[in-house]
Design a protein around this nucleic acid. Sequence first.
DNA 1: CTTGGCACTCAGGAATGCAGAGTGCTAGAT
DNA 2: ATCTAGCACTCTGCATTCCTGAGTGCCAAG
Lengths: 337, 337
Amino acid sequence: MLDDRKLAVLRAIVEDYVSTNEPVGSKALAERHNLKVSPATVRNDMAALEEEGYITQPHTSAGRVPTDKGYRLFVDRLSQVKPLSGAERRAIETFLAGAVDLDDVVTRTVRLLAQLTRQVAVVQYPTLTRSTVRHVELVPLNDRRVMLVLITNTGRVEQRVIELPEVVEDTRIAHLRAVLNACLDGCGLSNVPELVADLPERLPLEDRPVVATILSVLLETLVERHDEKIVFAGAANLAGADFSIGLRDVLEALEEQVVLMRLLGETSADTPSALTVRIGSENPYLRGTSIVATGYGSGDNQLARLGVLGPTRMDYPVTMGAVRAVARYVSQILAAS
Amino acid sequence: MLDDRKLAVLRAIVEDYVSTNEPVGSKALAERHNLKVSPATVRNDMAALEEEGYITQPHTSAGRVPTDKGYRLFVDRLSQVKPLSGAERRAIETFLAGAVDLDDVVTRTVRLLAQLTRQVAVVQYPTLTRSTVRHVELVPLNDRRVMLVLITNTGRVEQRVIELPEVVEDTRIAHLRAVLNACLDGCGLSNVPELVADLPERLPLEDRPVVATILSVLLETLVERHDEKIVFAGAANLAGADFSIGLRDVLEALEEQVVLMRLLGETSADTPSALTVRIGSENPYLRGTSIVATGYGSGDNQLARLGVLGPTRMDYPVTMGAVRAVARYVSQILAAS
DNA sequence: CTTGGCACTCAGGAATGCAGAGTGCTAGAT
DNA sequence: ATCTAGCACTCTGCATTCCTGAGTGCCAAG
């Protein structure tokens, strides 16, 4: 049904439309991409492509525009991910290498990606699930309150203020800290609940209420925060773009962590580092936008996801190249620290 | 030059224009605000106001629109800050009370303010300058690296990974931690530089390179980060509004911490909790927008600033009320913790 | 000082008329 | 069987024109 030339025509339409933002007609197409056939022939092919739903015309006697289905075919079969230039690679490397802590890595990454793609970049904070406890710290604030600080091997720091059920002197706190660290140091976060389950029973009776309070906060910290945090940058890039839906809706979605999480999607279990591309209506949460995302993290230790969001009319090869490259570099940085 | 009626006319023009977004004419004005004079009289007053530069007409034979100078007079002399409703107050209180840590307080505050004002809200993280050291923690990561964690009495946690110049065993680290805490615990952050100045000299010779490294990072953390962090929310509210400058410029400014800081402005030394209103061209960094900001923090311990940014055509009394109320509540919350 | 009257101005919408790009179809060429 | 050329047709976008209504400024009278 779709011979090689028709595919070439589709590819040409996508490329031209993406770069010019104007419906592309048969004549211009035949000229610009030396297809060696006449506009009339191209028109026939276009009619066939339209019949199949790959392209459409905004109105009679206008050029053609790719549909979501057309972009999908383009991404799957007609395009190649475009690698970054050497200069870009070096820029990424030096920019990310300057980060001082995890927060900084994430912030720099998201800005970098936004600048590179000229779209909105989204980065999820590394999940705690797969990381391990590096240190647990209890800091007395006054005699009824302590601050719990949890440090992971990925450099993430979680903090919570805990109201104690009774007055506790600093020496007892110091002792509890030692107990906690002995119990948890180096353990995977996902194992923490079982590891601390019988902890109260192994301690003197008078410590149990305090320990119970502390543990409940600790567990809460783990489950509540474990992959919620997510940031974006490059909203300014939305200003020019035109979405089928309102700009307002897009901005609202960006500020809603939950929606943003859904947009980035799940890392598929088998191929976590594969690029996911969701085009227009394929995306149930924010139609009219496209998303290019991928997991990051070193090897089998997938940490979280990052990607970009933009209009359906997007330069997919370039965007995919940038997302993939940034994911690799940030994985590398995180693995090193 | 400006008698009472002329001022009343100006107030009416501002109020009508803000609510309708259309140039307001003499006839509509005389009707809606029972001024008890005829449109012709109003016209004369308008001519005078225009002469003085308080209002202007977009084109001949259109109604009048306030100028920046007009808004300024309105804010200074013709309007009263509008307090929030009881329901709003309760909503603020419960929403902010649910915060679990400083990060959460700031995040909730900025969202709340955005929702309340339907503008873009901006909140600066509490400054370290006036806060005191609650605890310094050194966590060994491996034999050449430690993580420095600095906890302040405002609940803020700063973290840095430090590369040590030589291999250092954990016991030495523990000792250094004790020394640092003995030296700094409870001290104001601004005093830290002088307090640690002679620290290397008071330690055995072999510890000095390590201590020097740690201290340099510590000092860096203090100066670099001390009031840089700033967040915003409610960008979606920009979608409808029309600025004299491009939407893109506004979004870009919002993502630029430095610009944002400038926009919020300095807390004036004498009246730190006063509302600052900067209107349109009064604002050198982002003309065409207005900013309503104030300091927050309890009593004489001013922590930082917060405010909102919106189009010049803004409901100042309501916005000012919301900003003031939120600043008070967040001050209260922070003072309690 | 206020008011009513009046002529004047101008933005914005509706109607009109092009010009150009692009299409679909058909008949002929390869 | 496929490609090509030609032609009539359709439709947007743009400029032009016209008209209406809101709003003004000025003046003379109350």
